[in-house]
Design a protein around this nucleic acid. Structure first.
Lengths: 248, 248
DNA sequence: GGCCTGTTTTGATGCCGATCAATCAAGCCG
DNA sequence: CGGCTTGATTGATCGGCATCAAAACAGGCC
């Protein structure tokens, strides 16, 4: 449930740019790399869309025709095996740039797990713009490197961490993702279901639930509702996530 | 054991460029994106090095001062947990561009698992060059996207595939990596130990060995020596790796 | 050859997390 | 209110891979 915040009415100097001026994701997205004039050019090739929860808007193997920039809500990025096994490779919130694909087709699928708003860019148009705006290309490279680092961290988690370490890492990751909004908060919101957490961490629903219950019993976290978590012992969680404990 | 091939003596038109002309990795690396004139500029900021087996030349957390381009041999990229658990995030052979790091520090370590030759670029110099040569920057973005796709595939493997599926995927990946050299070969060489395969696939040495033995008993592969594998039933391996079997 | 060292293979056992299954809590709607 | 649905929690049991242990093998060296 995204709070639909009241937005100030802004009269833009260019079509589309008005939307950028009031965009919540403006300062944390690739758009931040551009000055006002160039942002207008970017906005000119963008189209805004709203997606209801559950909507799949990228399908693995489809022709990669568009890039996306999330401005509100959360999406999951995932890959499937023929028998239905699912691996979620990441959750993308406001500011996330999406669609960096090699070759002609998407390598993953994407689904809105909440109501989502996003900007859509046609691939050839964005490429053309990249050619003109080195700052944009540099920013995308930077974004890709960030993702790469995140992906490597996730491989360590999936390949070598225990269930408890994975869940601790996940909670801290969520806290970090929410941090830019209001610093040092101990309470986090989980917009995804247990099944989605499980598919992200390479575990099962039951294991997620059990580990969270155990954390609560040990007074490391609190769970007022299933989708709200309060980190009551963050140092301990950090040690666990880093692999410093695991004899406890 | 890399075969040290005899190289033709070439007189380059610029210092360093001579080395490029005789470089085995030239056509499959980022260097391929540049024309002769620009390649000279790239070569001018490069330094060649040889590394013995076992040499760690990038350490996670260290200041990211250099980029590297492998020209011969194989290196492993990995992350460690404090208690020694290791996750290998990838193996890099000739042509691989290395060091794409966000921020100031490397996010992973790198070690030569064979005798290695590589080109080293100082980070600020390469950045400066990127500014001048859009083709280079575009190529690096492309490289980063490729890595991202590979990383996502690996997350699926680590999070959701069984031990047998992982090993099958690994063998096919090795075959594909060797393919550019001589197409459709059924024999592959494994320059890494069982321990390294295990740390790459999120398994143990024993499991790797057992699965390979089982594959051989089932006449899916042959193992003339521990580091040479012949894929005798590639279609079956492909089905298994894709997750289409696993009732067998 | 014979010894040494490190890797791979094979075997016996155990445990963590998966699976199967039941209960619980929270909407939603008639 | 009660029946229905969906997601979360808790319990009982199982199995795949890890762990522990030992044997087989290979290469290097004298």
């Amino acid at each position: 449930m995204i709070v639909s915040r009241a937005r100030p009415l802004v009269v833009g100097d260019a079509f589309g740019h008005a939307a950028c001026a009031e965009c919540d994701a403006r300062t944390v997205s690739v758009c931040d790399a551009l000055d006002t004039a160039d942002l207008s050019r970017l906005a000119a090739v963008a189209a805004q869309r709203s997606l209801e929860k559950g909507r799949v808007f990228i399908e693995e193997g489809e022709k990669a025709a568009d890039f996306f920039n999330i401005t509100a809500g959360t999406v999951k990025l995932f890959k499937l095996l023929p028998d239905g096994r699912q691996q979620i490779t990441g959750f993308a919130g406001p500011g996330y740039f999406l669609g960096l694909a090699v070759g002609e087709t998407y390598a993953f699928s994407a689904e809105a797990i909440e109501p989502v708003r996003l900007c859509r860019f046609s691939r050839p148009r964005l490429y053309a713009l990249m050619h003109d705006l080195p700052a944009l290309e540099a920013r995308l490279l930077q974004t890709a490197c960030n993702e790469l680092v995140t992906a490597q961290e996730q491989m360590l988690l999936l390949g070598r961490k225990t269930a408890r370490e994975r869940v601790a890492s996940f909670l801290l990751l969520r806290a970090a993702a929410a941090a830019p909004c209001s610093h040092r908060q101990t309470e986090i919101r989980l917009p995804m279901t247990r099944a989605e957490i499980a598919d992200y961490l390479g575990l099962t629903i039951e294991t997620i639930s059990r580990v969270l219950s155990r954390f609560r019993a040990d007074k490391r976290i609190d769970l007022p509702t299933p989708d709200r978590v309060i980190l009551t012992d963050r140092p301990w969680l950090e040690d666990l996530a880093a692999g410093n404990l695991e004899h406890v």
